[in-house]
Design a protein around this nucleic acid. Structure first.
Lengths: 344, 344
DNA sequence: TTGAAAGCGATACCAG
DNA sequence: CTGGTATCGCTTTCAA
């Protein structure tokens, strides 16, 4: 690449330093205060129309973009909502919910940001989030403890909301009843006359927060009956499923709750390939009610769970931010219902 | 809720203002400068061990967390990498890539953040991103134009990298050859003797950026031959697939490229339910090589695409940030290969 | 209606 | 080795 030395060709639009409101003021021939008033439509002061125009034109000409950090430093608070990005792909159901939530929060004029806190755990992560001085932090399941909440609050977070299976001291909570998912599945299988029930537990580490309560739910559903529960570790790979299916005769199970629809699909195929008939030999129930469950043959029974509307959670966040002193709210989501299809 | 008025109960640990480095300095009995040196391990100055300890203890006692905005304001730059969050769920393949990338960037000490710019389009979005003064912006396909890149650069972004199907003026590009995906699929179907080829185009709006080049790829593969290409709009719902399958006799197609494996699964089921045999009556090819393709019966032929390692892209970003003057790099991903299974 | 100036929190230079 | 202090960009009183 031929480069013309700067000294020889100062004409090239070299990356001049980024324009500030002072530059805008200079170009418009006004003070920085006036620029601020105009660009923020401050209603407390009235600026003459010609001045407004000059300021707007200067801003556009320079390509001025305000500096968010400077602004929130001065303001003493931000409208940033931080969501730790889940480190494992968490499925379409959850993605859709997150999307909806982000949309709703944007409508309330928050800046929503997903922070990838890879490699940090517990309080370290909380500290990293706190550095950004968010107005609110929305933590998906298992990502924070009471000390983490304290760190965030001390550094000015006005609301911490956890989405998960258990309440965290000091934080608002949206409790999703994963145990209920397991309970519904277990009760259904029991009612269908099944007594030796397997429960798939994904080997993928990030999913334990879901799989554990779902497993416990199945257990609680058949507690005190003559039914037994067998834990079935399974990785999301064909080979793992094939190995599990090969052990089927010795396992002697007549039913499986497969954690979710995707694992159910994986297992259904492996079972069918191994000559195990679904649902005759073994009944199969998934969860999350994904489209793909309806596409399987036999079509997949599943547990449907109604996540709250993104708007509702957004409003909870907004309320919490406006009134940080209020006692933590706890909301429950336990609308788990069984969708009975052909696999059970 | 019973609320005790504040005035009556000032004893409750009310949110005292958030501790700053000045507070730490005061408590440790040193100057703010010293605090900064200690906490940042500044190697240029040597601080006595006792002082270090006192500072660290004071910081811990107060629960001090540095203020990222203040820091980057002072520093004049940030290590923030901004990635606009895709507004549509974009599939497991892409999610995994994003995750890997975030991880690699964190290792290089960048703060990676996904920004949900819901509702903003084009330059508006670019301006919103620019307010955060990121060091680099990674824009997935179709999210930015040349003016947007200019806005970002003018406000100090040292690198803009687009991941997509076309180069954008001024930005580094990682070009994923979606047309190649279509070409490979089309060529394969042609080679298998198919001549009336349907191409599924998702009705979901966000997917057009992928589906358009894939469709064009199929077209180019059979251009100048006796094969024809028919566009098949399809929404990701059973009913939509059923309607499409019902029209099958009149369409008279002997092959379909189904955009990706998920749409392929949807269509395969609908075709089978409508009595169309795959692959005898109609050959079917998906894309993305998802696990579920192997689980279908017949197992699904698909186009595998090798995305670059997250590490490589992270290094491109890092290089670009360190050397903002360098000419935009363009990298190509065109490793599309056909995985032949039973559906074609 | 506009301008001057203080100050948000952290850092890095320059003295001491 | 440690402490003042100017500075980053912006908003917001207070005066003019």
């Amino acid at each position: 690449m031929v480069q013309i030395p700067n000294s020889a060709a100062p004409a090239t639009p070299q990356p001049r330093s980024v324009p500030t409101s002072a530059d805008v003021a200079r170009l418009a021939g006004v003070s920085r205060a006036t620029v601020s008033y105009v660009l923020n439509n401050t209603s407390a002061v009235r600026i003459s129309e010609p001045t407004r125009r000059r300021v707007h034109e200067a801003a556009k000409e320079l390509g001025y973009v305000p500096h968010a950090a400077a602004r929130s430093l001065r303001a003493g608070h931000s409208r940033l909502v931080l969501m730790p990005a889940p480190s494992v792909p968490i499925g379409p159901l959850y993605s859709r919910f997150i999307n909806e939530l982000q949309w709703a929060l944007s409508r309330l004029d928050y800046t929503v940001v997903q922070y990838a806190s890879v490699g940090l755990r517990g309080d370290e992560a909380a500290r990293a989030w706190a550095e950004l001085r968010p107005a609110a932090v929305l933590v998906p399941v298992g990502g924070i403890g009471p000390e983490g909440v304290a760190v965030l609050k001390r550094s000015g977070a006005r609301a911490v909301v956890t989405l998960g299976t258990e309440r965290i001291e000091g934080a608002h909570s949206l409790l999703v009843d994963h145990a209920g998912v397991g309970r519904v599945a277990g009760a259904h299988l029991y009612a269908r006359g099944r007594r030796r029930i397997g429960v798939v537990v994904p080997e993928e580490p990030g999913l334990k927060v879901f799989s554990k309560p779902r497993l416990d739910g199945v257990r609680s559903a058949v507690e005190g009956t003559d039914a037994s529960v067998t834990v079935l570790p399974l990785a999301y790979e064909e080979e793992s499923a094939a190995r599990l299916a090969a052990r089927w005769p010795e396992l002697g199970l007549d039913a499986v709750f497969a954690f979710n629809d995707e694992y159910a699909m994986l297992l259904m195929r492996a079972l069918q390939d191994a000559g195990v008939s679904v649902p005759d030999d073994t009944a199969l129930v998934g969860a999350d009610d994904l489209v793909l469950g309806r596409l399987l043959r036999p079509s997949l029974s599943t547990v449907h769970i109604e996540l709250p509307a993104g708007r509702d959670l957004a409003e909870l966040v907004d309320r919490a931010v406006r009134n940080p002193g209020a006692a933590p709210e706890t909301h429950h989501v336990h609308e788990a219902t069984l969708v009975h299809r052909d696999s059970s």
